[in-house]
Structure formats: C-alpha cells, structure tokens
Design a protein around this nucleic acid. Structure first.
Length: 218
DNA sequence: ACCCAGGGTCATA
DNA sequence: TATGACCATGGG
C-alpha cells in the first residue's frame, strides 16, 4: 500500500470511529477567520467566548471591527487569552482585508496568492493561514498541526522533524483535492489526538491501535 | 498545584 | 537551523 492509500485508509478509519466532526460552524466567513486567530494555542471554548463577546457588541464584521481601537478589541476578546497580541493580529488582518477591498476580494485570490498574503500578516503563520484558507475561504489547503505531526509520527509514517510545508505537501499529494475532505480529515486528527494521542503517551488502545507503533511496543 | 489548549514571534547561539 | 522565552485565559 502506497503512502497515499495509507492516508486515505486512516481517514476512513477515523471517520468510521468518530463520525463527522462538524467543525467550525461559523455564521460567516469572517467569523471563521477571526476564530482561527483567536484559537491560537488556546482551547476552543475560550475562543468561542471571545467570539460571543464580539457578536454581542455587534462588531463581528470587518467594517464594524475596524472602527474599534486595539484596546477595545483586546477588552472584548480577553477570554481567548494572549488578548493584547491577538487584538493586534486581528487589526493587522483587517488591514489585509482593507487592502483587497473586503473579504470577498481577498478570498477571490488564487489559493497560492491568498496564502502568501495571509502569511505576510504579522501573527498569521502557516497553520492559521491554512485554517483561514480552508475553513473560511473554502480553498483546498491542508492544515498541519501538532496533533497531525504526533499521530503520524506514532504510526511510523514520518520521523517527526519534517518541515510544515513538507507534511502539508505529503497530504495534498496523497488526497483528492477536495476542501470538504481536508476539513473533515484535519478535524478528525484533532479529535483523535485529544482523546488518544497526547504528548505523554498513555493510550493502550484506540481506533488506530492496529497501526500504532507505540501501542505495539516499537 | 499542576498541565494543557485547534501558534507565532523574537532574541540568542 | 534550532532552541527558549514570551504572550494569558479558563478547564480538567
């Protein structure tokens, strides 16, 4: 079985074990993009509180949020943690949106350019850029995170020290270029990581145990 | 009293 | 290139 087929098989096994994750049910593309920044190194529940605050304040749109100062944004998103940094990052992102005449303009760019533009924003790195491109813009851009790296590493499919872009390329070359597949796969990897593949190995059995080097004592 | 969470940046070496 | 410090809240 080639690596591509293995990755597809793993996807089917995870989907069968956990079911569809229904990730990122934002009411707008902007809300989803804001969520991608707010959830950096932060529990989603905390990011969701911050989003609820923005919504309650009626500023969950590029136009409305742009009228707030950095300090005002910081106050609203406080539950998300790192709130001063994230307020600055949100304002930087708003700057990019303005530069392209709105979110529609930005998201109508070809994926490669959209990714470059997102990465040019201070505070938006590879994972956040891919999360926005995939979950907010609906483009086929696979998201790599710490869970993905750890899971593949435990399965013996990678060494673990590969560069972000390298792992991203591996998934994208192995899978059909389908945004919905990318979304579900990443969400399933996070779900599986939380439940069975923490930093401290303590699992003895899981949906992927047949493939797992750790469980099999290697 | 820890540990951790859907990262990224910057200063060092 | 590669570590370490830093950012900060809330839940388990």
């Amino acid at each position: 079985m080639g690596k591509g087929e293995v990755l597809l098989a793993i996807f089917r096994e995870l989907l069968s074990a956990y079911g569809p994750q229904g990730w990122w049910p934002g009411e707008s593309a902007f809300e989803v993009a804001v969520g991608a920044i707010l959830t950096q190194a932060t529990n989603w529940g905390n990011a969701a509180r911050a989003i609820a605050n923005l919504k309650a304040a009626g500023v969950l749109s590029p136009e409305a949020l742009s009228r707030l100062s950095e300090a005002e944004i910081a106050r609203l998103i406080r539950p998300a943690g790192f709130f001063r940094q994230k307020a600055r990052r949100l304002r930087a992102f708003l700057g990019l949106i303005g530069k392209h005449g709105g979110l529609e303009g930005l998201f109508s760019l070809p994926l490669r350019r959209l990714r470059e533009e997102l990465l040019s924003v201070p505070g938006i790195g590879p994972e956040t850029a891919d999360s926005i491109a995939l979950y907010a813009a609906g483009k086929p851009s696979f998201v790599i995170d710490a869970y993905t790296r750890r899971i593949l590493s435990r399965l013996g499919l990678i060494r673990g020290d590969e560069l972000y872009e390298e792992l991203k390329r591996m998934f994208e070359e192995s899978l059909p270029r389908d945004p919905d597949l990318y979304k579900e796969y990443h969400a399933l990897l996070v779900r599986h990581g939380k439940e069975h593949c923490r930093a401290r190995p303590r699992c003895t059995d899981c949906p992927l145990s047949a493939r797992c080097d750790f469980v099999n004592g290697k």
